[in-house]
Amino acid sequence: MLIKAKHLKGYRLNSTDGTIGSAREFYFDDQYWSIRYLVARTAGWLSGRQVLLSPYSVIGIDPIDETVSLSLTKQQIENSPSIDDDEPVSRQFEESYYNYYGYPPYWGGPYIWGSYPYLERDSAKWSGWDMSQAPWNRHLRSTQEVTGYHILASDGEIGHVEDFVIDEETWAIRYLVVATTDFWPGKKILVSPQWVESINWETREVVIDLSRERIKNAPAYVDDAVITRDYESGLYGYYDRDGYWVPDLVRA
């Protein structure tokens, strides 16, 4: 299932023994464009610290009740490694966090989730991980921070990032929702992170390797519409690109 970050934001977070708060925002890495943590708003509980939840702890999302079910107890979350609200997520914190929960490190292999192209939920396989293995230098970004970034085609600006479309199965960001209001009023489009050429974090710009004219004539995205595989196939086909569901691309 594909779900927008703005829809998930505000969903109630249910531990195994009670509600801990709601989803506030999300941290993703800038190589695989995968959600690494849900940031919880705890409404006074554990005030003053960021409460981070790995997708490994998510066992279900209910869009009807707007809830996210977790496999953790409130005590486990309370005793997890602490990080202040105004501190960045450091590598040291992540190593401590993953050691605490015993999760396999996502940076410990060549795939989106380390040694796997998916979330390996069989805990019997969570042994023997080497935390020192770091084949790529991960950087975490906030969906809240990147919202509003300018999207530049190869020949000029086309709009700005309005939202993110997340794959519930892998927690990969499949699309950026781009609002083109200042250029093509009323039109929104989806841009795959696979088409991103570069990102300038200082100027808040995302460059994609497509022309403005090509993008202008791309299939439009209707806000809140269900993104079907037929729509995705048409979108990727329009750009003459292979879909992310093609076996050779499951690592990304």
Score class of each variant (00 low, 15 high):
I208H: 01
T181Y: 08
I199L: 08
V196W: 02
N200E: 09
E197W: 12
V178M: 03
Y236G: 01
E205G: 08
V178N: 00
Y239T: 01
I199W: 04
K216S: 12
S233I: 07
V222E: 12
S198Y: 11
K216I: 05
E213V: 07
I227V: 08
G243A: 14
S233C: 04
T181N: 12
Y239H: 06
E202M: 04
E213N: 11
R204P: 00
G237C: 05
I208Q: 00
A220S: 14
E197A: 11
S192C: 04
V196L: 10
P219Q: 05
N217K: 13
T181L: 08
I227R: 05
Y221P: 03
I208K: 00
W201I: 06
T181C: 03
Q194A: 12
V177Q: 02
T181V: 09
I208V: 12
R229H: 10
P219V: 03
I189C: 05
R229F: 07
E197S: 15
Q194M: 15
G234K: 12
E232N: 01
E202P: 00
V178T: 05
K187T: 09
A218V: 00
L235P: 02
G243S: 15
F183E: 12
Q194W: 10
G186T: 09
V191N: 02
R214L: 13
I199H: 03
E205Q: 15
Y239C: 00
N217A: 13
D240K: 12
Y239K: 02
T228R: 06
E202H: 08
V207L: 10
R204H: 09
S233N: 13
W245D: 11
D223Q: 15
V207I: 09
Y231H: 03
D209C: 09
I189S: 03
E213A: 09
D182E: 14
K187Q: 13
S233E: 13
